[in-house]
Each structure stands twice: as structure tokens, then as C-alpha cells.
């Protein structure tokens, strides 16, 4: 591990942490435009986080230490995930310590902790949200893993930088299996980031909410961290998607010139991705909670099919 690659690693992590709320703001803005509303400021998520940090935290009497540490653990897990996913460069020393399977494990770690924290207070809403979150997770997590497996079958590696290297810096070839994987991945990321059609990030309607039900008891800095973490999660998922399906512009190891070009490329790609997400959210309707397994089951099976197609067509 050289100093340079270490610096790249830190730079990428810093960019992820800094840009994540911006991406959320951008998606909200696009969605408002598409729905003919006047859009909130692009920087609103930052202001919300800052406002929340200033407030006094209120913690329920029946809370255990799990409740208070969970925001930090979730945030930490998301930072780790951000350090693995190649968004700017593939020269990531930390990615050696954790590959694609560990990435899914980190997401699962965050999920389990947030679900436990939701059950900690002992209100009906918290447990309801926890149950639904785990319910969504048990299908989304395997589907995500299958998508990553498809990519790793193509590249012969489960390490994300190696996958991106194999996909981006190669002679032009079309991988039909990635079509399947792409559809499956889109479905999974919608579900995992609490988006329509599985969850609606902008309501607190008790019949439908998942993520909001879990964080209902949180306030102030804890809530700020959780919001930030979920923004980071969206950022991470976007970067995974970009890395697997549009890996162009990500700098290879030691390529400083490309690194300078990688940042605008990333922002450009994320902006497009945000518009696409807003489009999907505007065009689709929220599913009943028991249609969710159907939706995610479809994603899971498509991801499995991607592996099969990959074996049949050899790439």
C-alpha cells in the first residue's frame, strides 16, 4: 500500500460522505419538478442535518445502549461500504480487506442494527418497521448478492475494484447477463433505499412506512446520523450500479490524470442516475406490502437468471 493509494482511498471516502446528501437533494428536486411542484433547495438535506445536530437529543426512557450506539454503527458501516465501492478510482487498499460479499455483509450489519434499535423502545411502530425492514431485506440481500456474483463470474473475482477493472478496461464486449443483472439491481436498489414502489420516503403513513417507522423514536444528532447514513446508502447503491453497469471514467491504479477526470464523470453519471430514479419514482405506484415479496422475488429470480445466462452464453 503506497501513500498515493491511501490518499485516493481517503479522497474517495471523503467525497462519498460529502456528496451523499447532495444526491438526495438532487433526487428530491428532480422529483418535485417531474410532479409539477416547486422544488426544494438542492442543499436542503445539508441544512436538515445541521439543524438536527444543533438540537438536544431526546431518548426514550426504555432505551438501552443499543439504541444510542446504533446511529454511529450504521453510519460507520455505510462509510466502510463507501470505502469499498470504486466510485472514482479502482486503487482502493481497503477493498482488499472486504470484497463484494463483505459489502453485502456490511449492509446487512447496518440493517440488523437499525432493526434491533427500532425494537428497543418497545413501541408498536418500531417493531412494525423492524419486521418490515427485515422482510424486505431477506429477499433484497440475496438478490444483490446474486447480481454481484454475476459480475464476479464475468471477471473471475469478487473484489469490486478488480471487477470494475475487468469491466471497464477491456475490449468492447457486450454481456447479455448484465442486462438481467441490471434490471434486478434496479429493483433491489429501489427496495433497499426505501423508495417507491416498496416504501415512500416522504410520508409517515402508518400503513405503509418502513424506514420512517424504524427511526420514529430518533431525534437530533442520532436522527441526523441516520439520515446521513441513508443518504450514504443511496450514494453507495448508485455507485455500485455505476461501477457494474457504466464503469467508464473510473480511474485505474496510479493514473492521476484519469483521477482528475473521474470526479466530473462521477458527478455527471450520478446526476443522470438521480433523474432516472426520480422518473421511476414518479411513474410507479406504491405496492401493497404483501406485493413486495413478489417484486423482490422477481428481482432475486432475475439475478439468478443472470447467472444462468452468463453460464450459457459465456459472458
Amino acid at each position: 500500500m503506497t501513500i498515493a493509494s491511501f490518499l485516493t482511498q481517503l479522497l474517495e471516502l471523503a467525497i462519498a460522505v460529502a456528496l451523499a446528501p447532495l444526491l438526495v437533494g438532487w433526487v428530491n428536486m428532480c422529483r418535485a419538478w417531474l410532479q409539477n411542484k416547486s422544488a426544494p433547495s438542492l442543499l436542503l438535506p445539508y441544512r436538515t442535518i445541521r439543524k438536527l445536530f444543533m438540537k438536544d437529543a431526546v431518548v426514550a426512557q426504555s432505551a438501552s445502549p443499543i439504541f444510542r450506539t446504533t446511529p454511529y454503527i450504521v453510519f460507520g458501516a455505510m462509510c466502510c461500504a463507501a470505502a469499498i465501492v470504486p466510485s472514482l478510482a479502482t486503487d482502493l487498499p481497503f477493498a482488499q480487506a472486504a470484497d463484494a460479499i463483505a459489502l453485502v455483509g456490511l449492509f446487512a450489519l447496518a440493517r440488523v442494527f437499525i432493526a434491533l434499535a427500532a425494537m428497543d423502545i418497545g413501541t408498536a411502530f418500531g417493531a412494525l418497521g423492524a419486521r418490515r425492514e427485515m422482510f424486505v431485506g431477506f429477499l433484497a440481500e440475496p438478490a444483490l448478492l446474486m447480481v454481484l456474483f454475476t459480475a464476479s463470474l464475468i471477471s473471475g473475482s469478487t473484489s469490486l475494484p478488480t471487477i470494475v477493472d475487468a469491466l471497464a478496461h477491456r475490449e468492447l464486449a457486450i454481456y447479455p447477463s448484465l442486462a438481467f443483472a441490471g434490471v434486478a439491481f434496479t429493483m433491489v436498489s429501489l427496495a433497499e433505499n426505501a423508495r417507491i414502489p416498496i416504501d415512500n420516503p416522504s410520508t409517515h403513513l402508518e400503513l405503509t412506512m418502513i424506514h420512517e417507522a424504524m427511526v420514529l423514536e430518533y431525534s437530533a444528532r442520532h436522527l441526523a446520523l441516520l439520515e446521513w447514513a441513508s443518504a450514504l446508502k443511496l450514494f453507495n447503491y448508485s455507485c455500485i450500479g455505476l461501477a457494474l453497469f457504466f464503469p467508464f471514467g473510473i480511474a485505474a491504479a496510479g493514473d492521476w490524470l484519469a483521477l482528475i477526470g473521474a470526479a466530473p464523470a462521477l458527478i455527471f453519471k450520478l446526476a443522470i442516475g438521480g433523474v432516472a430514479l426520480a422518473f421511476i419514482e414518479t411513474l410507479s405506484a406504491k405496492l401493497r406490502i404483501f406485493r413486495a415479496p413478489e417484486f423482490l422475488g422477481t428481482a432475486f429470480l432475475l439475478a439468478v437468471l443472470a447467472m444462468l445466462v452468463n453460464l450459457l452464453l459465456g459472458g
Partner: peptide, 11 residues
């Protein structure tokens, strides 16, 4: 690091 405790929200 200020923190207050309160009963949980009863909806």
C-alpha cells in the same frame, strides 16, 4: 452531547 430522556411517543 446533551441528552434528555422522555417517555416514548405514544402516537
Amino acid at each position: 452531547g446533551r441528552i434528555r430522556t422522555a417517555p416514548p411517543w405514544d402516537c
